[in-house]
C-alpha cells in the first residue's frame, strides 16, 4: 500500500525531469509559463509543473529557484467519490507545492479538505480530513516538513458550487492549498 503512491511519484518525477529539460530553454519566462500552464486543463497539468527540476536532487537550476519563489497558482485538486486517493493527473500540482514548500521553509500551508454534500455531515468531516491528510502525507514523502503543514477539514460545509448533480459534486470533492 505504501509503495504504490511512491512508485507513481517517481514516474511523475521522471516526466518532470524530461519536461524541465525542454522548459529550461524558456529562460526568464519560466515564471509566466508556469502559471499559465498550471491553469490549463488537466490533460497538460503534468507539463504545467515542469519548471522545477530539484526533485531527487538538492541543487536546483536558476530557473527552478525562480519559479519556487512563487506560490503555485493551481491550489485545488479534486477527488473521486468516496475516495482519498490523489489522482495521477493532480500529482504534478501537489509536487509543485512540494517544491515551493521545500524551497521556502518558512512558508506554511493549511490543507482544506472538502466533500460533496451526500452523506452525514460529521462523517463527511472525517472524509474531508482523510483527503487533506492524504495530500499532507504525499507532501511529507516529497520532503516537506510536517511543521509547514496543517490540515483542516470543512466536510460538506463549504461547497465550491451549488447543485445536486455529479458535476457539482465533483467540483466540491477537493483539497485546497491555503497559504
Amino acid at each position: 500500500m505504501q509503495l504504490k503512491p511512491l512508485a507513481r511519484s517517481l514516474a511523475a518525477a521522471l516526466s518532470i525531469v524530461v519536461i524541465a529539460g525542454c522548459s529550461s530553454t524558456g529562460g526568464t519566462q519560466d515564471g509566466d509559463s508556469y502559471g499559465s500552464q498550471d491553469g490549463s486543463t488537466t490533460g497538460s497539468s503534468t507539463s504545467g509543473t515542469g519548471t522545477g527540476s530539484q526533485y531527487g536532487s538538492t541543487s536546483g537550476s536558476g530557473a527552478g529557484q525562480q519559479a519556487d519563489s512563487r506560490i503555485p497558482e493551481v491550489r485545488t485538486i479534486y477527488f473521486d467519490y468516496d475516495r482519498d486517493t490523489i489522482k495521477s493527473e493532480y500529482e504534478s500540482v501537489v509536487m509543485a507545492h512540494a517544491r515551493y514548500l521545500r524551497a521556502n521553509p518558512n512558508a506554511q500551508v493549511v490543507l482544506h479538505g472538502h466533500t460533496d454534500e451526500r452523506g452525514t455531515r460529521e462523517y463527511n468531516m472525517a472524509l474531508g480530513e482523510r483527503r487533506a491528510g492524504a495530500v499532507e502525507r504525499f507532501l511529507n514523502i516529497q520532503g516537506v516538513s510536517s511543521s509547514q503543514m496543517s490540515v483542516v477539514s470543512y466536510g460538506e460545509e463549504r461547497p465550491a458550487v451549488n447543485g445536486q448533480d455529479e458535476s457539482a459534486y465533483a467540483q466540491n470533492r477537493r483539497v485546497v492549498f491555503n497559504y
Binding site: 460545509e157 463549504r158 461547497p159 465550491a160 458550487v161 451549488n162
Partner: peptide, 9 residues
C-alpha cells in the same frame, strides 16, 4: 442556516 457559496458564506 447557510447562505452563499464557497468563501463567501
Amino acid at each position: 442556516t447557510a447562505q452563499g457559496i464557497g468563501d463567501d458564506m
